[in-house]
Nucleic acid binder design. Sequence first.
DNA 1: TGGACCAATCTTTTT
DNA 2: GATTGGTCCA
Length: 752
Amino acid sequence: MDISFILDDLNDAQRQAVTLDESHGLILAGAGSGKTRVLVHRIAWLTKVMGYSPYNILAVTFTNKAANEMRGRVENLIGQQAGGLTMGTFHGIAYRILRQHYQDANLPNNFQILDADDQKRVLKRLLKAMELDEAQWPVKQVQAFINGEKEEGRRPHHIEIGHNPYVAKLVEIYKEYEELCQRGGLVDFAELLLRAHELWLKKPHILGHYQARFRHILVDEFQDTNTLQYAWLRVLAGASGKLFVVGDDDQSIYGWRGARVENIRQFDQDFAGTLMVRLEQNYRSTGTILKAANALISHNDSRMGKQLWSAGEEGDPILLYEAFNEFDEARYVTSQIENWVEQGGQRDEVAVLYRSNAQSRMIEQALMQAQIPYRVYGGLRFYDRAEVKDVLAYLRLVVNREDDAAFERVYNHPPRGIGQKTADSIRQVARDQQISLWQASQMLLENSLKARAKTAVQGFIDLIEQLQDALHAQDLEQQFVKTISLSGLQAHFEKDQSEQGQGRLENLDELISAAAQFDNRAKQQTAAGINTEESVMAAEDESVRLDGTTLIDNPEQSTLEEFLAQSALEAGEQQADAWESCVQLMTMHSAKGLEFPLVFMIGMEEGLFPSQQSQEDASRLEEERRLAYVGITRAEKQLIMTFAQRRRLHGSEFFPVMSRFIKEIPPEYIQEVRLSGRVQPTMEREGSAGFTSSARQNETGFQIGERVSHAKFGDGIVLNYEGSGEHARIHVNFTEFGSKWLVLAYARLEKR
DNA sequence: TGGACCAATCTTTTT
DNA sequence: GATTGGTCCA
């Protein structure tokens, strides 16, 4: 058999990884070293050469995007056979397993997924019901605690309380939250994994099935796994399954959300007979960029060790620009992008990377002014939008009346006269009786409710019942159309003539067409069902079935339920103006896995990057350094770093120092930019437009050193001023209150 | 019930 | 400084 199509375009290290024998594999894949290629070719090798059925292979990723890309590339390589592979995110796969064995997992068959936002709302309500002060028990912290414990695999009874009353209370909340979710058939993200893990431990025959089935488990971005995911993989692999994990300890940047670099560092100790392969040849960046990256990351201790190299050109030095302030920084970035385009470059070949989202604003303004189209990554994605979630909540309630999270979201949205008091009494009854809000409403209807409230609540109950009837025997698209109109959401948003209201209506239309599309695909899948059935038969054990390819083809689940699950598990791409070539703006975190010919790293300053909060702790600082490493290695041809002498942040002025990460790059790879016609910093003042550097004009009417007085702060001396018009601000050192920046228009300063 | 006003907050984010 | 969440009032 001709296997050249699998091996021909691989380098030695890649080939070694792809052709590993029956052992565990740990592939240390540097940035741009072809890690996806190795995964894809490994799958081809296993199926075409080693003779494994696609049904014996599981490939796990963190994001849907990665899963989709892998599936596409495997299909290109091995064609139709790829359909039999089980591929997906940790959460997606856990979900399918729970669906398949919902009874054994002690879940109702219509259980719903609670996304992070829903979870927060549920917790908020719970804290209120438990009469806990929100200032003392911030929802965010409680949420982080519960998710953190779940991700460590701990239930409330596992947690060591000791004599800590604070922890004791958190555990109590965790416990109540758990009961609430169980009653409502609600499963949050961490719960998906934890339940699946517990299911395996409790039901050996189910575990045995999956262990027998998944002979080879491939994992992408292994450095990002948390404790639970690691345990999950370990249990699944069992004594005979083979793990093939690909990752890069130097690119571990999610420690703050539970990822453990230790998982990749200690892998070969936990899995005997692991063969390690290093992929160090980089196909992305110039020699200079790689050397700079290598030098930077070598400042971290406890690395597994890796040196990226390239057979390509050395390329241009990294450019370093010291801006006067953030305006100047943005202006410089913009002018460089204009140069790039003038010299024949494309706008979408350019990425501007920053540490925190707040930094995008300046760049956006400058790009807008220069009329350069751009796209900002991050922010709300489609299924996260409020109006979309509203519609989904109605449907969730139709599917599962016990879903309190959905009930809370829509019982009075759009407004239908169920006020605070009525809602409170419903919640009270629900809590006292340990029943759902839905049941509590019905109970209240039977006895104590004033006429007006009664009509309102009855109206809502009738609406949901009516919706259910209306949806019966309709296709998915019609179900959404009906829901949007009957719920009153349509009319509600139509009333809003603003741009925002119009946008919401458009999103609802978009949701309808997403539903139509999903339905079509579902029907196609069913039509091709014979094929699927055959392949399922090929699996070794029919006693427990897992449909590996899709969520479809589960007779107990309606298309609507499938759609609801998918919308929770895949928040959806945020729409981009696809037809226009855009400059890409994003955080360094979201840049991981991407590459661009021209990359800017802006705000390279102590306090910003590395961020203030990471300065003290050595391990967090190392993570920041890895983030810088990720940023640098995104660049293919040219890397430009900038920092500013002064920067306005959170409303006040700072004078930052250049980031240590720049100093950690040997100077021979860096070229400092000096602009010939640059305005002297002391002379430079920003007008209200922000990007003109005219000489200082004093529009304030005050002089530096002048004595002034303020109604609240008393007497002081003018230190400085800036801006003009209504943005003009003045810096005053008050005798009693110290120095403050005041907006001149509001301060009503008086001369003394 | 919605608008207006005030206070608190300000890494990074996928599922 | 800008956003967000909460509270207060017509």
